[in-house]
Design a binder for these strands. Structure first.
Lengths: 158, 158
DNA sequence: TCTATACTTGCACGATGACGCAAGTACGCA
DNA sequence: TGCGTACTTGCGTCATCGTGCAAGTATAGA
């Protein structure tokens, strides 16, 4: 599993936005966004129980033991242990073992940097207001050309 | 499924960091981070194929049709269609239907704002260098107290 | 009206993951 | 050395998810 915050080359010095002829050509060209959009990082955050444990640790703002964290969730302690280990493997938590007690803490600097790196990498490809790929927020898309049959608001949107 | 960028109250005006007695007390107190850490957003990004499609759209930096996007992936077109619809429901993509052609584009402003909001919310709980919950990057944890038997680097880490 | 194109949906199947229970390991303390 | 505590691991079960195939819908053009 990939550790958070391995790739930092996408920060402010990212290459300028470039338009490819087709998605196929775009996919063939490796850019920082490819490495930054790591499914393993998001996999760690896509389970409600894991997110609950993480939020609990974030809010507590100090290293906590497995048993302590387990108190804020309604699942077996073995499940808590597994989830915390999972989050550690993903680079989101760090653990210290002191005797029998294992305390987990959030690697907040690394996690925040990773999230911001991803945002930077996306914007380096699609700068707001210039890329034509953001429809609802900056109005780049030629909405008047469309037949106003956007799926947004239609059957698909819950 | 929750849309991206619904919660914005966690930005710069976030409440100051607060230390709770225990994770259980921390969990009981609702903070912006709870709403921002939405598993549904991350679920949309945790599948390798979906991430590939998203990266493809980000790099292409323009609205692309389902067929076009499908060319950069080795899966059935029905799978591509389903994944793009999933990403739209998660608020990551927007779609416009023009005749037979459905084009998808990245809601990059919203997505980037959401990622940065999460980072801000985490840091509002755990400011770097002060919270004691980030061990490897800022050295807040009393590592000298620990018996230097961190699982990091041990059996658990691949 | 017919046909081709572009995309979506229903269905079945295999893989993955989350869970609880029980057993195991590691450590502190009497 | 024995016991209790804190946590981890093995295992079976159930639910969810990703996938491809086939059929369906919607639209453009002849």
């Amino acid at each position: 599993m990939t550790q958070v915050r391995i790739h930092t080359q996408a920060r402010r010095g990212a290459p300028p936005a470039r338009v490819f002829r087709s998605p196929k050509h775009a996919a063939a060209k490796a850019l920082p966004i490819d490495a930054l959009l790591d499914p393993d990082l998001f996999k760690a955050l896509c389970d409600p129980t894991r997110v609950k444990l993480l939020a609990c640790l974030v809010k507590c703002a100090r290293p906590c033991s497995v048993g302590e964290v387990g108190e804020c969730c309604d699942v077996d302690l073995s499940v808590v242990s597994r989830h915390l280990a999972f989050l550690e493997r993903a680079g989101i938590l760090a653990s210290i073992k002191k005797g029998r007690i294992v305390t987990y803490s959030v690697r907040s600097s690394d996690l925040c940097a990773s999230l911001r790196d991803i945002a930077d990498a996306i914007e380096s490809c699609c700068p707001p207001g210039t890329c034509g790929s953001c429809s609802t927020s900056c109005g780049c898309l030629p909405v008047s050309d469309a037949q106003s049959t956007r799926t947004q608001g239609g059957r698909r949107v819950r």
